[in-house]
Nucleic acid binder design. Sequence first.
DNA 1: GCGTGTGAAACAATTCACAGCG
DNA 2: CGCTGTGAATTGTTTCACACGC
Lengths: 205, 205
Amino acid sequence: MAQAQVPDVVVRRLPLYLRTLTYMEDRGQEVVSSTELGEWTGFSPAQIRRDLSYFGEFGKQGLGYPVRYLREQLESILHVDQQWHLVLIGAGALGHALVKYHTFRRWNYHIEAVFDNDPEKIGQAIDGLTIQPMSELARTIKEKHIDIAILAVPAEHAQEVGEQAVAAGVRAILNYAPINLALPPEVHVSHIDPVVNLQSITYYL
Amino acid sequence: MAQAQVPDVVVRRLPLYLRTLTYMEDRGQEVVSSTELGEWTGFSPAQIRRDLSYFGEFGKQGLGYPVRYLREQLESILHVDQQWHLVLIGAGALGHALVKYHTFRRWNYHIEAVFDNDPEKIGQAIDGLTIQPMSELARTIKEKHIDIAILAVPAEHAQEVGEQAVAAGVRAILNYAPINLALPPEVHVSHIDPVVNLQSITYYL
DNA sequence: GCGTGTGAAACAATTCACAGCG
DNA sequence: CGCTGTGAATTGTTTCACACGC
């Protein structure tokens, strides 16, 4: 139940445990040990047991963890057991790919509306969603009780667009633009920048 | 110069420093202090000084760091001062977006070829690159001295496709499929999975 | 004075190792 | 016996605080 003292590194590992548990459950596996979960995810058994123990006692001594029960618990901890309403800002090639990415829906993340400032794009549809002008952003966020905005705009517009989304009530941002956003600390910002990943990789090559 | 004892957390922060320095240099800024870099990136001044000190002494006491010099040094450390040759596997909506993503080229990451196993897609072009059948993958990786493969395939094919790329000589993988890859430890694997980011976010909401 | 670079100190995360229970 | 949950020990990371040089 969202203890404040849970380290953020632990929170970032939970989705990886959840992903693996879901995979195992789909294959009919009923019990898993911390050792086996570790082989799948690359973390040590002790670390996995410690991580889970922040949230409760989910395992059975001598046996392991019931896959289905642990999966349900993790979904509850990560608040994946409810619907989340998002908007996407930026209808370029990346925006198109994100709207069509089925895995979002599978995990209860629903893109409710798409925005762009290009008059050519406004009115067109992606996967059943009509691209709206930026002037509609605030109204939609308020009316549809949007929690999260995905930013897929050029870097030079990301700050401004992020501010607009926050002003309209968004509490978290998933930012695909390769730039740091300066936003109030209560807004949760997460970055995806493949160049950052590639540069960490090529350090080691 | 690639000291083995540099912690991975440090390596993962370097691209963020580099990004900010490039931004500052584009705006004509010549000198930056660790405090100012910290304000832009969200890290503490002490941490930034410590991180950089793993690689050398780049600053001037009483002044700060010369932006251009530090940017060059970081590019050298991250091996961004050379061309990197990549292949993209998977020509779906995400694959299309990645081929068209200009920021890769800006940082010397060049997608040299695109592969897919869908007969409908083979022969079509994305941004000047013809989609090739998977049967050509190994030959291309060898002939073009490809270092890195980007995986943008469905989760159920990622393991097999990753193995093919590694067998043909790729040393690193950027994996967009939402599944863990089991590959030899000398292969560097980096993951991008927006659902993982969203689940960490919604933990806090 | 200002800001780096860095020992030393403080804090955080991971691993060890074992009691306890099924 | 096998495996969890967890104190204690260890290892890793960040911050403090200051000598030094511009």
